[in-house]
Amino acid sequence: MKTNKSVAAALVLSALSISTAWSTDKSKTNAGDDVAQHVQRQAAEPAATPAAAQVSAMRIGSKAAIFGSQVAAGTASRAVAVAPGMKYVNVASGETVTFRSGEQEEAWKFAESIRGTNVDLGVLLPGVPNAQGVRVYIDRSHLFTGG
């Protein structure tokens, strides 16, 4: 008897949820059309997307943000000359470094890293000549390791 009441209650609840879902497509949107028509119209419209260059810059910027952020050159604790043929540079977690190539200089404040990591300098500072292909090795943070 108790099982029959549970089954009956489940059937009633499922019927109520079906009727609610069925009636949703008959509801009106703020645009005045049915929900189903609204979804179909939106699917047919092309999505507004930024230019390919902007998308590429957003991807680079979001990857670079993992490693820290660009800062004013006057805030750096040291400067590194980026020369042709340079292979790598070592930095400490949390360190701010100015990278110079010719007349151009840009500074980067490296994020604290739990484990040591590395990144291409060209990803962080794509505008710096000779930066592409130079690996930046970021030391483990003493803040997290207690050292």
Rank of each mutant, 00 (worst) to 15 (best):
K2M: 14
T3K: 15
K5W: 15
S6W: 12
A9L: 15
A9I: 14
L11I: 12
L11R: 13
S14C: 14
A15N: 15
L16Q: 13
L16G: 15
S17A: 15
S17R: 15
S19K: 05
T20I: 15
W22L: 15
W22V: 13
T24D: 09
T24S: 07
T24R: 11
K26V: 04
S27R: 13
K28Y: 02
T29Q: 11
N30E: 14
A31P: 06
G32D: 12
V35E: 03
Q37I: 04
Q37L: 10
Q37A: 13
Q37H: 09
V39T: 12
V39D: 09
A44Q: 15
A44V: 12
A47R: 12
A47C: 13
A48S: 15
T49D: 14
P50S: 14
P50H: 13
A53F: 10
Q54G: 11
V55M: 14
V55W: 12
A57V: 10
M58H: 10
G61H: 08
K63S: 07
K63N: 05
A64G: 02
G68W: 00
G68H: 00
V71K: 04
A72N: 06
A73W: 01
G74D: 07
T75W: 06
S77R: 03
A79W: 02
V80M: 08
A81C: 01
V82L: 03
A83P: 00
A83N: 09
A83F: 07
P84E: 09
G85L: 07
M86E: 04
M86L: 05
M86I: 03
Y88P: 01
V97D: 02
T98S: 07
F99L: 02
F99D: 00
R100Y: 01
S101A: 07
Q104T: 07
Q104R: 06
E106N: 03
A107S: 06
A107E: 01
K109H: 05
F110V: 02
E112S: 05
I114Y: 08
R115H: 10
R115V: 05
G116E: 10
T117D: 07
N118C: 01
D120K: 00
D120H: 01
G122Y: 06
V123N: 02
L124Y: 06
L124F: 04
L125G: 04
P126S: 05
V128H: 00
V128P: 00
P129N: 08
A131F: 01
Q132R: 10
G133K: 09
R135Q: 11
R135M: 10
R135D: 07
V136I: 09
Y137G: 04
I138N: 00
R140Q: 13
S141R: 03
S141K: 08
H142T: 08
L143C: 03
F144Q: 06
T145P: 00
G146D: 11
G146W: 11
G147S: 12
G147K: 10
